[in-house]
Nucleic acid binder design. Structure first.
Lengths: 150, 150
DNA sequence: TTGTAATATATGTAAATACATATTTTAAGT
DNA sequence: ACTTAAAATATGTATTTACATATATTACAA
């Protein structure tokens, strides 16, 4: 369905630029709700899932809170509390960094790895359904988004 | 800058599909922060701004809460409280719908229109800077997003 | 008409978010 | 060494969000 139909927009957008912004925001929400539906079953928020994936991507190299923020999709300042939540669930470890007592080393635990694998498996199983673009189109979409932000 | 650089991703994405999802979420946040910076000056949230724009697009035809939800980018259920906020600021009117005492007619006020015009002017003035794609590219981006969701 | 379901919105509440500020530790300058 | 600034994270707090439930009204069926 076209964007205009989905949000029941009767009159045309002022510019194709404005339409693009709305389209990105709308598509983002579409992704968010799709993902969240599955994440909720695992009792984890989208943000927590994102942080876990970041840590998992580091293998066994720990990251500090600031390094996590750098890698997060939305740079807000409560990464510290997100890590708290993950720590309480036993998915990450957190200890004072050697050589800098201000910073802390955060690492995914083996429990966290097992959990993440399970979640990711469940989510990607569903994502296969919505594989509506071909390889070249995905690449073009990525290129355009990168260029938009440039 | 490429997506990988921006979020300091060292290893490649598992698939171009996964990368696209992350790219859309990242770009959405990029837009959100850019917009919010200006909206805050006007003491209005992104969601409230969105609702005002929806109402403005209707000229003088009022919308019910449910019709507003249909047109919102993210369909959450607190449109009622968003309208409350806008009502408190005098930007919308709200009265019982004739013929259905459950529903209510929400309409943008003239104060709301003046306000919206001011905000939009301020935002679009800045958006001109970041006009990094050409017309055809914007259209292609819109087409790909629509297809992705299909 | 009377009970039951559906509709439209409002409200209660726990959790998450944004933003400012505090705390602790390190760095740098004199 | 001492002062001040910067860095890294934690905490406080008001607002927003998500989700469930409540209230009021309408529609429908027996």
């Amino acid at each position: 369905m076209s964007l205009e139909q989905e949000i029941k927009q009767t009159r045309p957008f002022k510019s194709v630029y404005e339409k693009t912004l709305v389209n990105i925001m709308f598509t983002n929400n579409w992704i968010f709700f799709k993902q969240n539906k599955y994440l909720k079953k695992f009792d984890i928020s989208s943000q927590q899932y994102n942080v876990l994936r970041i840590l998992n991507g580091q293998k066994d190299k720990p990251l500090t809170i600031n390094e996590i923020i750098d890698r997060m999709l939305d740079k807000m300042s409560n990464a510290s509390r997100l890590v708290d939540k993950l720590y309480a669930k036993g998915y990450v470890s957190r200890e004072q960094k050697i050589g800098n007592r201000r910073a802390c080393d955060v690492k995914i635990t083996s429990k966290g790895k097992v959990f993440l694998e399970e979640v990711t498996k469940s989510i990607t199983a569903i994502e296969k359904d919505l594989d509506s673009l071909n390889e070249a189109e995905y690449e073009e979409l990525n290129r355009l988004l990168d260029k938009l932000r440039s």
